[in-house]
């Protein structure tokens, strides 16, 4: 049968920052081709195709029902592959090669991570799973 793609609606205007992205106008309807865990979704709108930030989209049916995974307060061990300097109050600043615990894998690509006493958002594209079990 035909492949039915999910339709999402843009909740804000977005101006693309690199080629292969799409500009968005509030209310635009897009079909989702691929949901990357780094928060960039590959979408199509009429004849155009390109990447869009997932945080600017909501499902057309049931806007409050994003299929977001539950938080895992035990944490999953990941290593930062790249440093990032917090630009917002709720983000963490980390260098490359730091081991952290991922608590919540948000669809917008900004995962909630824990490092010691600190908790905040970090770009998932700068994280790699360690494959180790957390020490209890």
């Amino acid at each position: 049968g035909p492949i039915i793609l999910e339709t999402y609606r843009a909740i804000a205007d977005y101006g693309k920052s690199s080629k292969y992205e799409l500009n968005l106008k509030t209310g635009d309807l897009l079909e989702i081709v691929e949901k990357s865990p780094n928060g960039w979704w590959f979408c199509q709108r009429e004849s155009q195709r390109g990447w869009v930030p997932a945080s600017y989209l909501e499902p057309l049916e049931g806007p409050d029902e994003m299929e977001e995974p539950e938080p895992n307060y035990e944490g999953e061990l990941y290593i930062t592959t790249k440093g990032y300097t917090a630009a917002e109050d709720d983000e963490l600043t980390l260098g490359p090669g730091e081991t952290i615990e991922v608590i919540h894998k948000l669809l917008d690509g900004w995962w909630v991570v824990r490092k010691g006493e600190q908790t905040g958002h970090y770009p998932s594209m700068y994280l790699r799973k360690t494959g180790e079990k957390r020490e209890v």
Binding site: Y14, N38, D108, G109
Partner: peptide, 22 residues
């Protein structure tokens, strides 16, 4: 190629639209 996602982290949602956070 076009199938490769951008190499920079996606923007955070506009503050007033930010979804509920833990």
């Amino acid at each position: 190629s076009i199938k490769e996602p951008p190499q920079n982290p996606p923007p955070r949602p506009p503050a007033e639209l930010r979804r509920k956070r833990p």
